[in-house]
Simulated scan of single mutants.
Amino acid sequence: MRAFLFPGQGSQAVGMGAALAEASRTAHDVFHEVDEALGQNLFRLMREGPEEELKLTENAQPAIMAHSLAVFRALTKDGGVDLTKAANFVAGHSLGEYSALCAAGSFDLATTAKLLKLRGQAMQQAVPVGVGAMAALLGADLALARRIAEAAAQGEVCTVANDNDPTQVVISGHKGAIDRAIELAKEMGAKRAIPLPVSAPFHCALMQPAAEAMRDALGYVVVKAPAVPLYANVTAQPETDPDTIRNQLVEQVTAMVRWRESIANMSAAGVDEFVELGGKVLGGMVKRIAPDSKVTSVVTIEDVEALAKEIA
């Protein structure tokens, strides 16, 4: 059994998609369609930078999705791969959940781009710059990360944002609390605590205004049942019901990304091959969660052609 995975924020890099668009008209058309939907030359920003602008949440989110979908469409349209025959499940890390749903037919590409642009803007605006922060706790599992966050909170928000794998958990909240957590982490048993270069504290209660903005936006959007079940970030369980998916996308803004559990549950369900489309971040996490599984990252046209040959 196989699952297709879609990366989240942090996978952006200047130059992303440029070679793929030159090699594949299908991929080129994806970038063009996203530009049209947003009324923005996002693909030029992806190709040429500047990096600071690409890293802005409102640009990074649709850019990462566009890159993943360009890879996915090159694989399916050019490579002749049928999603329903090639994959049993899809899943995405945070914003990658939108990419996964677009690939599975729940949203069209233009709608996905607009939703992610709005999501990025709403997350950025939810908390003034400098008020929130995030940190990665390395060598810490979920239980330890929760203890560290609890000890550091002192009346402020400090919670687990991403349970990524057995050795890496990300916390999010008020900057003061995150700073305290970084100080406490080592003495409480974590190997290291690293502040993350993010512009807002994602996946915590401070994101509630962004969750409300997404509730409004998703209320106007048609959500179709995905062609294959989506393993949802908020439940780590497979889902196909459109209304449930809509509600989970709202909840996801403030809730913990249960990535470790999602991969473990897919593995327990029989998935032994994971394919990451448009990035190389999730593969390492998967290997730490399900070490016996086969992991493939598909980024270049050569990657696309090799995978298409293998599974078409």
Rank of each mutant, 00 (worst) to 15 (best):
A63Q: 02
A133D: 05
A161D: 03
V14C: 06
G219V: 02
V71M: 02
D35Q: 13
A122H: 08
L42Q: 12
F107S: 04
A269R: 08
S68M: 06
L196K: 08
G79N: 05
M134E: 00
L54K: 07
L206C: 05
G284A: 03
T57N: 04
E183V: 13
L282V: 12
P166E: 09
E156K: 06
A269N: 08
L230C: 11
M266N: 05
Y98H: 11
G130H: 09
A23C: 09
E53V: 12
L230R: 13
R258P: 01
T76L: 05
M123T: 07
I289Y: 07
A122D: 06
L69N: 05
H67N: 13
N247E: 15
F107L: 04
A133H: 00
Q125G: 13
T159Q: 09
N162A: 05
D179F: 07
K55T: 12
R44C: 14
R25I: 14
F107K: 09
R2P: 07
V14D: 08
M46K: 12
S106D: 02
E305M: 09
P291M: 06
V250H: 07
R246K: 02
G80K: 14
R2I: 04
H32K: 15
A21Y: 10
A100C: 08
P166M: 11
I263A: 11
G10Y: 04
A145L: 04
A290L: 07
A122R: 08
C158H: 00
L118R: 07
R47G: 14
A104F: 03
L249I: 02
P166G: 08
F89M: 09
I178E: 00
C204F: 00
T159H: 05
H203K: 03
A200Y: 02
E261W: 15
R47Y: 14
T300V: 02
F6R: 08
S199L: 00
N233T: 05
K175M: 03
T84G: 14
D241A: 12
Q168T: 01
A135Q: 00
I311R: 14
T300K: 11
C204I: 01
T240C: 11
V221S: 07
L230I: 08
V127G: 03
S262M: 13
L83P: 10
K55S: 13
S94N: 10
L5F: 10
T112S: 13
R215K: 15
G49C: 11
A153T: 02
A290P: 04
A19G: 10
V81P: 09
